[in-house]
């Protein structure tokens, strides 16, 4: 059993988060809880999420999780933001159970983004 606290995907997403940044003119939301901060910035076209960017302050699992959700939601219809695949993220990134709260902050950010984009 590896003692490395990060799996290959966390290392990849943390080292090269291709969705890091913000979108000028996009809709931006911020979630700040559990000692971490997540900002999401989105641009919509034809009812779909055309572009999604993030900024994050937290542990590598959090950064990787936000990169994961950006890759997951980009190109999806807005309704997709109503669902959040917590279990898949936890499994894909091998997030320690004690960090679940941080992933829920990402979920809060996604739901907040969905509300902002639909109102």
């Amino acid at each position: 059993m590896s003692s490395d606290p990060y799996n290959a995907r966390v290392r990849e997403f943390f080292a090269a988060p291709v969705h890091a940044g913000s979108l000028a003119g996009g809709v931006t939301v911020l979630a700040d809880d559990q000692g971490v901060r997540v900002a999401l910035s989105a641009r919509v076209a034809d009812g779909r999420i055309a572009a999604l960017r993030f900024r994050a302050w937290g542990c590598p699992h959090l950064v990787a999780a936000v990169e994961w959700v950006c890759r997951h939601y980009e190109g999806e219809p807005l309704e997709a933001l109503e669902k959040f695949p917590t279990a898949r993220i936890m499994e894909d990134l091998a997030v320690p159970i004690e960090k679940t709260g941080r992933i829920l902050v990402v979920e809060d950010a996604i739901h907040s983004l969905g509300r902002s984009l639909t109102h």
């Binding site: 700040d32 901060r37 900002a39 900024r55 302050w57 950064v63």
Partner: peptide
């Protein structure tokens, strides 16, 4: 620091 969002 570049990766971090501004605090609320």
């Amino acid at each position: 620091r570049e990766l971090a969002p501004q605090a609320a």
